[in-house]
Amino acid sequence: MRKYWHVINVGIQNTLVYRLNFLFRAAFGLIPLTATIFLWQAVFAGKQGASTVASYTLTEMISYYLIVTIVDALTAVTDDDWQIAGDIREGTISQFLLKPIDYLYYRLCLFFSGRMIYCVVAAVPVVLFIFYLRKYFVLPADIATLSWFLVSVFLTAMLQFLISFTMAMLAFWVLEVSTFIFILFAIEYIAGGHLFPLDILPPLISQVLDFTPFPYQMFFPVSVYLGKTSGAVLGWGLMVQALWVMAMYGVARLVWSRGVRKYAAFGG
């Protein structure tokens, strides 16, 4: 266990190099966010009389996007998948096959340390932004909601990481994984609820999405925070989310062992 603490430590020091890049990223990410908020304000302004769009008030809608930004800062995989693919392509993973350290846990530690630094850096612009929009920012209804939200965010982070890890394993089989990573990212972006809350979609589509892991990568924790998911549905949702994490862990392990077999066969 101690060696993994060491990895986290090294990871923190390594990612500190990118702090400026992170700040840049977080600050520029607020531009399209602002644009989306403007767009929704225009939609709500155009609806004389009716004050909700599919059960969302303007405040809830804006809060939705603000919380998406927070969850994204806490859980998004930014560079890890590229690095893993790079490790495989350039053969740096050979050393992990020899050392008494597990590559998946090693990457997980790096992922967490990367997120930690990112959140510290991104906190400045994001908090300022939320403070500016404080009148549209709802707080969780009670401590229990907040706790379940945090549990769900943790599971989201695990799910994000494991899916990206598995995707990066493609590098064992194909030379150029970046297109696949982008395709997955695009699907996660829309089916996960980055672009809009999934419950404003026609019911049939959101029901179909419920059978995929994507809503659990973003939409689910946000809806917990907003109190849109509570009671028995919340318990059930958390269970499904945990099941997805376990399933993806299994897939990641399987693909890794297959990949390593293939890799070794190449003559590492």
Binding site: L39, V43, I190, L195
Partner: peptide
């Protein structure tokens, strides 16, 4: 495009 499509499920015009 689908983002815009979804928005217009709930409104007739934006600004």
């Amino acid at each position: 495009l689908s983002f815009i499509g979804v928005m217009y499920l709930h409104t007739e015009s934006i600004a």
